[in-house]
Simulated scan of single mutants.
Amino acid sequence: MSARLVEIIVPDAEVPRTKAIIAEHCSRFWQEAVPDGLEKFSCVVPSRSIESLIAELDDNFKNVAGFSVLVLQVEAVLPAIPELEEIAPFSSEECKPPSRLEIFFTRDRISTNELYDDIEASLELRPNYLLTVILSALIAALGMRSGQTAVVIGAMIIAPLLGPTMAMAMAATVGDKALGRKAIITLVTGILAALIFTYLLGMFIEVNPLVPELRNRSIVHPADIALALACGAAGVLAFSQGASLSLVGVMIAVALVPPIAAAGLFFGSGEEMLGLRALFLLATNLVCINVAGIVTFLVQGLPPRNWRITSGIFLIWLVILLLFVGLVGGRIVLGSDGPIYLPEDSLSAQQIAPY
């Protein structure tokens, strides 16, 4: 069981109330005096209890001068603490103990405050963000053009689209309009920057749509939908457990960066229809990531501020996803794609077979 060291500073007058709150969430804590008439409590708290502890402290002391909370990662605890291995007893009769299912899904999730801290810096529209988005898209575009899968994977490792993508799903889950607005602006800006530069690249290099790496980004397969759903769920799961952001970023970038880069190349080389198809794949993947992300956040116990807002946003994403699935299914059933011919000045006798 993972744990956190929570340091709580309150005025001397609030010591009894603070002790009572802490005792409901953990059995091991220390108290020491600090300057300016304040007391500091250091508590070892199970990760599953962090959310409720911080919420209760905030409700009671948010307007109290001198109040502050610091949460730190704990690597090991000796001697063992009982509640780190089993359900901690709840002394308050008003508090309903968590069910076994809730404990199973939330036992390793970091708190909402930690999620916000991890994601906040990645939502800033800084030159480094735009530069890494552009470079990752250009590398992916060149890798797909030459059919080098390893280069495409390398581009996804540096793609910084994790922050805004995770923030969109998180904002929808908790009902945070400000976070969602900031995430959308950051993500759209990054996508537009990548499209512009890959479009310019497509104007100056020869692009062969027959290359499998490019061809596969010009159509949506049912497997692509399954892949995007899996990437969204796995990304949120890893992110909410405090996993390496590079690892989570690859999970998200695998569904976003290649379609962006392919669309830019297609538009730049005059293949508008293929460019639109690549954008459709991008839109489908983005919807899938958000649907899977919201579900995974909810399963892990991320508390919505307003269930009506959360369920409304989720239903909108779900309806869009079902519409996209219907379009993909209709194309497969009707075989409406048809062959796509290359420009006459390059391999005019070849076709891209329906796929």
Score class of each variant (00 low, 15 high):
29 F>W: 15
218 S>V: 06
165 T>A: 03
94 E>P: 06
9 I>D: 02
355 Y>H: 13
250 V>Q: 00
181 R>N: 05
328 V>H: 00
83 E>D: 14
280 F>G: 04
200 L>Y: 08
110 I>R: 12
144 M>H: 10
295 V>Y: 04
60 N>R: 15
289 I>T: 09
242 G>M: 12
107 R>F: 06
154 G>W: 12
275 G>N: 01
139 I>M: 03
15 V>M: 01
150 A>Q: 15
72 L>G: 05
63 N>H: 10
58 D>A: 03
348 S>I: 02
316 I>A: 11
154 G>D: 10
107 R>I: 13
36 D>M: 09
34 V>N: 02
247 L>K: 04
348 S>Q: 01
200 L>F: 13
117 D>E: 15
89 P>I: 09
15 V>R: 13
179 L>Y: 00
196 I>Q: 04
293 G>L: 04
327 L>R: 00
323 L>T: 01
331 R>H: 02
104 F>S: 11
213 E>N: 12
301 G>A: 07
79 P>A: 11
245 L>M: 12
316 I>H: 07
246 S>R: 10
205 I>D: 11
233 A>T: 08
87 I>R: 15
122 S>V: 05
5 L>F: 12
162 L>F: 03
16 P>S: 12
56 E>T: 04
273 M>E: 07
127 P>R: 06
137 A>W: 07
183 A>F: 03
347 L>A: 12
217 R>F: 00
96 K>T: 13
218 S>A: 11
143 G>C: 00
254 V>C: 04
216 N>H: 05
300 Q>P: 04
223 A>S: 08
299 V>F: 11
34 V>G: 03
184 I>C: 05
24 E>M: 06
2 S>V: 08
184 I>G: 02
247 L>T: 15
350 Q>L: 12
146 S>G: 13
339 P>D: 10
237 L>C: 09
136 S>M: 10
88 A>R: 14
50 I>H: 05
227 L>Y: 05
283 A>E: 02
128 N>Y: 15
306 N>R: 09
185 I>S: 08
113 N>I: 10
168 M>G: 07
81 I>L: 15
131 L>Q: 11
146 S>T: 15
137 A>V: 12
346 S>M: 13
166 M>H: 01
48 R>H: 08
273 M>C: 01
92 S>F: 05
